[in-house]
Amino acid sequence: MSLLVNAFDGLAFGALLFVLAVGLTLIYGMLDVLNLAHGALYMAGGYIAYLLLGGASVSLGLWAGAALLVAALGVALGGVLSAAILPLRGRGHLDQALLTLGLAILLSEFLLGVVDRGFHTLPPPDGLDGSVLGSYPLYRVAVIAAGLVIGGIVYWIFERTRAGALVRAAVDDPGMLAAIGVNVARVRLSVMLAGCGLATFAGVLGLPLLNLRAGLDSEVLVLALIVIVIGGLASIRGAVVGALLVGQVQTVGVALAPELAAYLLFAVMAAVLLWNPSGMFGRAR
């Protein structure tokens, strides 16, 4: 019974990780950009929502409005990031890594300077702060629902629309796409903007679960990187499976083997890479 609760709880964290990581994996796959500022974007989402709502409990409508506003700001930050990365075309992942690491430090330290270095959080919106089935927090159910909705939308766009087909094509063969007259740069930009918007949105979604503090950016960045490495790059399915697996490892896994809890996540990632050096759904690149 308690393992079932663990597993369900793993879904909640998996859903949050999916929203965070899906942008990272698409940006890597599409733009060939290793965005180490992704964790800082998540953190920015949390801090901006905290600044907007002031740490008080608010109505669901106000909360959702703030979340959308934050996502829009994330899109704007994605534009800045795209512009910053533009001069680096053809210079490889490590230069992008250093640039985005520098930008991540600037962004997170700026946020800590504007708010403070203390701990902050936001309670769930009114109506979602209760519990279900006796003692399971309703907000976590809502996070799963949000993950399903966002996952569904992403899947639908990716698999069922022309825009999604262009994105997939741009991953597989950008040269061909350009040759048939598609503006590949615009496809790339839209993926970047959407990915950054999702990252900041995840920061709001995760606010009642992971409190705001110094170092939050690198903590979630490492989790997101693990998700996309396990799943394989540029694959929505990979991000889903990776996020769900990490969620279960962190709940069912540590409940079954508590004495190994500290090693478990990295050991699982290493094991997946030994089994398939490009992740579960990844292609060799």
Binding site: L88, L98, L99, L101, G102, I105, L106, E109
Partner: peptide
């Protein structure tokens, strides 16, 4: 840390 972050960006 802000100085260091800016340094990384400029160096790239």
């Amino acid at each position: 840390l802000l100085v260091e972050g800016a340094l990384f960006v400029l160096c790239v």
